[in-house]
Design a protein around this nucleic acid. Sequence first.
DNA 1: GTCTATAAGGGGATAGAC
DNA 2: GTCTATCCCCTTATAGAC
Lengths: 183, 183
Amino acid sequence: MIGSARDRVLRAALDLFGEHGVSGTSLQMIADELGVTKAAVYHQFPTKDEIVLAVIDPALARLEPIAEAAERRRTPAARRRVVLAGVVDMVVEYRRLSRVLSFDPVVSRLVRQHPAMTTVNRLVTLLTGTDPDGATRVDVAMVAGGLVLAGTENALTDLDDETLRRHLLTTAARTLRVRLSDG
Amino acid sequence: MIGSARDRVLRAALDLFGEHGVSGTSLQMIADELGVTKAAVYHQFPTKDEIVLAVIDPALARLEPIAEAAERRRTPAARRRVVLAGVVDMVVEYRRLSRVLSFDPVVSRLVRQHPAMTTVNRLVTLLTGTDPDGATRVDVAMVAGGLVLAGTENALTDLDDETLRRHLLTTAARTLRVRLSDG
DNA sequence: GTCTATAAGGGGATAGAC
DNA sequence: GTCTATCCCCTTATAGAC
């Protein structure tokens, strides 16, 4: 075991959340995984919600720099490329987490209330432009859903990160009709 | 209230599962929604799992006819068109259900053990052909994930079923490079 | 940092009356 | 079909010793 007791809790939680979902993971399971008691876990975090937030925060924190980098570009096409590449990287890096992050009702509540949601909306606007039509909104929803699910799909675990990243980027760009090469 | 007591339970369960997830929905919540007690619900179904199965069965039952219709077509292109159209129809019809059906750890377990999984595999093979490469498998995973998520996306609830169906079909076909018109 | 012990509540499920 | 009452288990969370 490397890292502080706090880090050990977070690593165990990430593993268990990925396998059983947040609602399906009790503090007892986290404690058992570490070989300690529930009270020891409570010494590190005051509530279960705090553990969930600490697990998902690093992933959500990746979004803000993507939005800033995209907004520094001048053309809408370049902005779309930056958003797409950044989000794909993030999804691959947090493969195991994304399924849990998007669907568990507990996390859904925590994410809805999270400040990072404004960044998510900025990223969507960077992809769609303002006042998108129905077809464009469906395109973006398909890509968002596809990235999350494909990132966690068991059938794709044999692909290494770099291969998965490349395929996801190509497919997402085709769906959104974004050219990946500039000019 | 129209329908048998059993039907009322299933309708209430569908609503609550869609909103809170299966793990987040207790028998007490279902009973409260109907204005009865838990024991009355248990009179209709022996276990909670049985309720979940009864809710998802109609959606899973839609898959088999799609596979059969597709297999009656002679060209791979025609088969892909039939699978795509059928699955999109099913996703739209069961909009609220699909999120729950795909991600809740409880349902995930029930679906994995369900006989309809062999049909799912047949549909995937109809789309990809046998022995697909990594890029093709990512394409299919993206479309599957995108359909499920877009179908349940709150931001798209303003679209009526027919509009949503049309956009989903167009976008999914583009992602998979399937031509929707034959010939 | 970790322990034992316990509180307080909700979960699924059952027994038996009406 | 529905009720009351209950069982047993697991959950989050707290108190206080070491």
